[in-house]
Design a protein around this nucleic acid. Sequence first.
DNA 1: CCGAATGTGAACGCACTGTGAACCGGGAAA
DNA 2: TTTCCCGGTTCACAGTGCGTTCACATTCGG
Lengths: 226, 226
Amino acid sequence: MEPLLLYPDPAPPELAQALDLAAYRWKGVSDERSAARSEPDDGWAGGVIVAAVDPEGAFALCRALRKRDVPLEPLLLLVSGGQLADLELREELFDDFCLYPFQPLEFEARLKHLFWRTGRGTRPELVEYGPLVLNLETYQAVIDGHPLDLTYMEYELLKFLASHPGRVFTRETLLSRVWGYEYYGGARTVDVHIRRLRAKLGEEHASLIQTVRSVGYRFGQSRWGV
Amino acid sequence: MEPLLLYPDPAPPELAQALDLAAYRWKGVSDERSAARSEPDDGWAGGVIVAAVDPEGAFALCRALRKRDVPLEPLLLLVSGGQLADLELREELFDDFCLYPFQPLEFEARLKHLFWRTGRGTRPELVEYGPLVLNLETYQAVIDGHPLDLTYMEYELLKFLASHPGRVFTRETLLSRVWGYEYYGGARTVDVHIRRLRAKLGEEHASLIQTVRSVGYRFGQSRWGV
DNA sequence: CCGAATGTGAACGCACTGTGAACCGGGAAA
DNA sequence: TTTCCCGGTTCACAGTGCGTTCACATTCGG
């Protein structure tokens, strides 16, 4: 098995020790660049990321690792009790989490279960909503059986929206979640991409993306079938 | 969302309380048969199973629920520290686990993440009062099951009022709390919005918003049951 | 019965969104 | 290197939804 990615670098000693005792190999990284530099030829086996110490860097790294062509998984996040509430809007950044400081036995059990369930491929590779299907592996989109020719940003935007059907997102939220936190650009950019998406979805399905005036955009129907 | 299956029955009080506080509905079951008997028409939304108290029964129930034609998922297992080692050979029986006794915040975060990744949807944040339901995520309102088509300000006003049922607010207070502190405009604006809200609520429910002459408006019944 | 407070309908005008097109930077091909 | 092209961003303009205001009608309290 390839080594695990570990953040931060140097890693907390008790974490390194727990991994060693459980016979996992690992390499510490300090940011995205060093992660790319020290990545094994066959890629990382997974990631263990301590968010309790440097949340900024940790979440930024998660985001970068998840955004790659082949998103890194599984990712186990170590968070402090006070950070539990922060997880809600970052569900896509990790596959499991563990309170930090941790009990070695719990930590080990989580790692084991994580590899078990991702190893068997139970994690969905598809995002589906009604007639729309996004294949996350091949980067292809299909609607009503017809392939959609989407650009990168269009695909990312649609993927994010379709992953949270029914929910309203402001332009600012979309910019930070799809374009990236550090992105600074006009909010109208979102409008234009929404428009192109609607055009490519076709007249029949353009209404999959709804405008909520003064708020933002929503994908799909509400939970009440409005 | 359908209720969660809960084992054992009666459930530990702190577990029931945690679920209630997080606004999940649930039903306690004592074994496979009672689980089948009290299963909702649309099936369980998931399961929370305490393995720390009666491991035998708990794992037997998990096995039964996983063996069905449509295996029940997600299943969250509550285990004691001493049981961590037992999980290794039972990976297929659960989707996530939590140490028991648990921290309510961690428990809630796990449930949320579990529902997110299994695609059963996150639990929407709701404001409810009698027949009225406001979904804060989707910016939609429903009364008696019928969707309300509200504009942004109407929605915000109703949200504020419904969040403080029984309380009287002056027009000035409403302007500062709903429109914004720095807002400077005529107080009659409130009247007009109240009127439109009443119209959209329908004749039957228009009285949800009461006029308190010379003071302002109140949503729902007063605290004295007048 | 009078005056103040509130309900009601309509009109105005701003701000928000849709839309077409220009701009610009990066990567591929020659 | 130069050139071309594609996709992402920005800009300008048009349409309109809706928040605000006003005038008038109605109701309520004293």
